[in-house]
Each structure stands twice: as structure tokens, then as C-alpha cells.
């Protein structure tokens, strides 16, 4: 090593005379490679899904998104019916789960006696740990028959004038799927909301109560506006979960219907469930490639959901910063 190199290297070191340690370089290198690996993994997932969908992309183009029907015999595939089913089931589940989750979160932060809070929080979050295949099993063998025998006929006879509540033929319907998805996203929305509600500064709440508001008026005027952004993000994440759920929906939604029906009490199918159900029957290249296309739609949606939730949280945080000042 020449003198010039040595001085040049010494100048770059923070402390003259300290050796560059091989161990440090090694650990940083290996750990850095692992982190790079995680980034590459995400890229690889995107690449492989697009690559798999290429044949279907070039055959059907964007018309795939609107075509209703899945016809392996004539090699004509489309995601229209599944997009519709996905939208109906996940939005329906979100509409049912959000008020319930907010109620649970408010109960846990504002109303429940202190000794109840810990156990109930743990129980509701345990709901998130139950595998989707077990909830689906329960949905198809317990919930479905109960809905078919009691709930759906009752709703049809009282609210039958609304086309959503048509006649039911089986227990495996869009409605069953909505309820199962509600159960699955409930703990997500409620646990995030609970954390947000805990974070509301007590002085704001006390100020409202001190002005003579009732507890509900305090919640409506302080807690909910303060946490609006976070709750929206929680709903977005819940929606993402509902859209991506394959197994439970495949079990309970009837799934042999690839068309569009506004009757909640008829069978339906979603993007994710369709992929899951075709795992044994996909045969031709175009068939498999079209499944990848469905997966691509899901992947893009999950990316959008994550980024959107981030943006919403950041905007909410900025607004809170303004409020606090």
C-alpha cells in the first residue's frame, strides 16, 4: 500500500488509527443484503405476477376487467363478475364492521369498567387470530344454514321490495360472505380505533365535558373528529383485508356464479376466491394466465390500499399537529 493511499484512507476515518473492522463491514454487509433482499422480494413478486399474466394481458387487454364470465371451454375469461362480487362483499362487510368496531372501541376506552378492558380487548383481538379456513368452516356449516332457515326468509318477507333481499335458495350466498368478512375485519378496525381513541389528549375531552356536554356529545365533538384520519386508515386496511380474503369466501359464497346479481341472497364470487377455487382445475396456459391476471388486480389493489392508508394517516397527523399548536 502506498503512502498516498494510506493518508487518503486515514482522512476518511473518523478517528485516526482506528482500524476498519472486518466484522463491522461483514455484519453491515450481510444485514444490508437481507434488507435489499426484502425489497427485491417485493419486486420479484410484482414481476412474477405480471409475467404470469402476460398471455392473458395480451389476449384480453383491459377488456378483461369488464367482461363477465369465466368460460374455460371457449377460453373466454373476464374479471367483471368477480370485481362486482368483490366490491359488494367487501363494501358490505366494511359497512357492517365499521360502526360495530367503533362501538367496541368506544366501549373499551370510554365506558367499560377498568377490570373489563384488558380481557375484552384481548378477546376481540383473539378473533383476528382465528384462521380464515376455520371461520369459513363455521360459515358454511353453522352460519349458512341458520341464515337460510331463519334470517334470509325473514328479511325477504319484510324487506323483499328492495331487490337486495331477494328469495334465497341456499345458505351459501353473498350475504353469508359479507357476514364472514365482517367477522374477519372487525378486530382489525376495532383494535386500531381503540389505540387511536386512547391517544386523544385527556385535556381536550375534559374541556368538552367541562363545558357541559354529555359523554356522547364529547365523543362526537372531540374524539371522532380528532381521530378521523386514523379511523379512515383503519377502514382502508380493513377493506384491503376483505378484498384479499380468498379461503373463507370461497367456502361460503356459493362461488359457482360468475355473473352479476343484486340479490344478496344468491351465490356470488370474488377475485381472490375465484383464484382459490381454480387451483385444481386450471389446465390451459390461458386459464392459468387469467388467474395471474386476477392476482395482478389484487396485488395492485393491495399496493394502493397500503399507500392510501399511509397518506391518510400522514394527513391526519399533520392536521392534529395544527390542532395541538
Amino acid at each position: 500500500m502506498s503512502t498516498l493511499d494510506a493518508t487518503g484512507e486515514a482522512a476518511r476515518r473518523p478517528f485516526p488509527g482506528r482500524r476498519v473492522r472486518t466484522g463491522d463491514v461483514l455484519l453491515q454487509g450481510v444485514a444490508g443484503l437481507a434488507a435489499l433482499g426484502a425489497v427485491v422480494l417485493l419486486g420479484l413478486i410484482a414481476y412474477k405476477i405480471v409475467d404470469g399474466a402476460r398471455l392473458s394481458l395480451s389476449t384480453f387487454g383491459l377488456g378483461f376487467l369488464t367482461h363477465v364470465g369465466w368460460d374455460p371451454v371457449h377460453s373466454r375469461f373476464g374479471a367483471g363478475g368477480f370485481l362486482f362480487g368483490t366490491a359488494v362483499t367487501s363494501i358490505g362487510a366494511l359497512l357492517l364492521a365499521t360502526p360495530l368496531a367503533l362501538g367496541i372501541a368506544l366501549f373499551l376506552t370510554e365506558l367499560a369498567p377498568r377490570w373489563i378492558r384488558g380481557p375484552v380487548t384481548a378477546l376481540v383481538e383473539t378473533l383476528a387470530a382465528i384462521p380464515s379456513v376455520v371461520i369459513g368452516l363455521w360459515g358454511i356449516l353453522v352460519l349458512g344454514p341458520v341464515l337460510h332457515d331463519h334470517v334470509m326468509p325473514a328479511l325477504h318477507s319484510t324487506l323483499g321490495f328492495i331487490p337486495l333481499f331477494g328469495p334465497s335458495t341456499t345458505g351459501s350466498t353473498i350475504f353469508t360472505a359479507i357476514l364472514v368478512l365482517t367477522i374477519m375485519i372487525l378486530p382489525i378496525v376495532s383494535s386500531i380505533s381503540r389505540e387511536l381513541f386512547v391517544g386523544v389528549p385527556p385535556e381536550l375531552k375534559e374541556a368538552a365535558l367541562g363545558l357541559g356536554t354529555t359523554r356522547w356529545e364529547m365523543v362526537r365533538g372531540v374524539v371522532l373528529p380528532y381521530t378521523r384520519g386514523g379511523v379512515a386508515a383503519a377502514m382502508i386496511l380493513g377493506l384491503g383485508r376483505a378484498v384479499g380474503e380468498a379461503i373463507a369466501v370461497a367456502q361460503v359464497s356459493g362461488a359457482f356464479n360468475n355473473g352479476i346479481s343484486w340479490n344478496l341472497f344468491s351465490s356470488g364470487n370474488t377475485l381472490a376466491a375465484q383464484i382459490a377455487l381454480e387451483y385444481q382445475s386450471a389446465e390451459t396456459n390461458l386459464d392459468v394466465s387469467s388467474l395471474f391476471y386476477l392476482g395482478l388486480i389484487l396485488l395492485v389493489f393491495s399496493l394502493v390500499v397500503n399507500l392510501l392508508a399511509r397518506v391518510v394517516v400522514r394527513r391526519g397527523a399533520r392536521r392534529q399537529g395544527v390542532l395541538a399548536r
Binding site: I45, G52, L237, V243, G244, I247, I275, G295, S302, L303
Partner: peptide, 12 residues
């Protein structure tokens, strides 16, 4: 984002 990728997509 990885955590948000649906299981079925990881499968394919």
C-alpha cells in the same frame, strides 16, 4: 406492503 399482499397472491 409485503404484509398487505394477500396470501392467495403470494401463493400464485
Amino acid at each position: 406492503v409485503l404484509n398487505g399482499v394477500p396470501g392467495i397472491v403470494v401463493g400464485i
